[in-house]
């Protein structure tokens, strides 16, 4: 199932049974969405439930908060995470705090969906990844969708949650076709093992997770070992029990992300693993991230600035050889 279709299926199925759910965002209605996630919903549910907004991100989120006060369950689409910064006040000062400030009186069941990441030559203002920016704000749940399964089940869980959820997607995943099958007890907050292995635990999410899986094939061949790959589906709440269990077995941790290295969310994962598995580690954790630079337009530089399957493999192999594998 196409990733974008999995997202649409989740929204559509819930809208069918709950008419308090409304969608709002730029080009989401008449036009069908810039990534065609909401294609067809405008004609199915009408303009009162699929609301085309102007380019006014702060108001989009602000209005959605007000709608939630009024008993609606808004699903916001921000065209890309880069523009969410225009709504950062509403997200951080308002959305994340209202329930707490009201002593638990007011719930805000609101989901903000948005894609992130480096696509292809979109330059510095259109290529960012913001796991750290949202996951570090108490009061926000932050989920990611790396394939059609997390897209479908995860988005449903997000929309049904009575809390505000930031739902991160990736620009390059929309047109990808992923295996889809039914799962009964899916819980996005638990993280997900996508491949089991014995000697290295690799943690990642979104597009770079797939690049990592490709790299892992090479790593396993070259080092003659197996790698366990864990998809990070929920950055907040951050339940890493699966990762701890895995690291205790493999004794080695690699975290791969498209964020620039310094202060990236990889740091948080590594810190938590150090706190919980220090005596089990047989090698210093390895971080593979983008460079600490804005993203350049030139394709060669752009690829140089982010992890690619080749680079991920080389880095893990060198690191493995240096640390007893």
């Amino acid at each position: 199932m196409l990733y974008r279709d999995a997202l649409k299926k989740a929204i559509d199925e819930l809208m069918e049974i709950d008419d308090t759910i409304v969608i709002l965002g730029e080009d989401v209605g008449f036009y069908g969405g810039n990534y065609r996630v909401t294609d067809g919903l405008f004609s199915k549910y009408g303009e009162k439930r699929v609301i085309d907004t102007p380019i006014a991100e702060n108001s989009i989120v602000g209005n959605a908060i007000g709608m939630a006060f009024g008993g609606l369950r808004p699903v916001v689409e921000i065209m890309t995470v880069n523009f969410s910064l225009l709504a950062y006040d509403q997200i951080v000062n308002q959305l994340a705090k209202i329930r707490y400030m009201s002593g638990g009186d007011i719930c805000i069941p609101l989901t903000i969906r948005m894609p992130q990441g480096v696509a292809k030559q979109l330059a510095a203002q259109h290529s960012q990844s913001f796991e750290r920016i949202f996951a570090s704000i108490p009061g926000l749940k932050v989920f990611t969708a790396s394939d059609s399964i997390t897209a479908y089940y995860g988005l449903k869980q997000a929309i049904l949650s009575d809390d505000p959820v930031i739902f991160l997607e990736h620009l390059l995943l929309y047109s990808q076709d992923f295996l889809f099958y039914e799962i009964n007890d899916f819980d996005i907050t638990k993280q997900r093992i996508v491949k089991s292995g014995e000697n290295i635990t690799l943690v990642s999410c979104l597009k770079i997770l797939h690049d990592s899986l490709e790299a892992v094939k090479e790593v396993e061949k070259k080092l003659g070992i197996t790698v366990e790959v864990i998809e990070l589906t929920s950055l907040s709440p951050l339940n890493l029990d699966l990762v701890y269990e895995s690291v205790k077995k493999t004794k080695r941790l690699v975290v791969v992300s498209e964020e620039p290295k310094t202060g990236s969310f990889t740091s948080e994962i590594i810190t938590k693993v150090m706190e919980n598995c220090f005596y089990y580690l047989d090698a210093p954790p390895l971080r593979i991230t983008a460079e600490d630079t804005p993203t350049p337009y030139n394709r060669k530089l752009e690829l140089f600035s982010i992890p690619t399957p080749d680079k991920i493999a080389t880095k893990i192999i060198n690191w493995g050889r240096e640390h007893g594998l």
């Binding site: 004794k251 005596y279 047989d282 690829l303 080749d310 007893g324």
Partner: peptide, 27 residues
């Protein structure tokens, strides 16, 4: 890029090889 990346890898390796203290992983 791969070449560049492995060059960087080699540099790191050389740097760490210089250290010859009695070191051991936590495990």
């Amino acid at each position: 890029i791969v070449e560049e990346a492995s060059k960087i890898g080699e540099q790191i390796q050389q740097q760490t090889q210089a250290v010859k203290e009695a070191l051991a992983s936590p495990y």
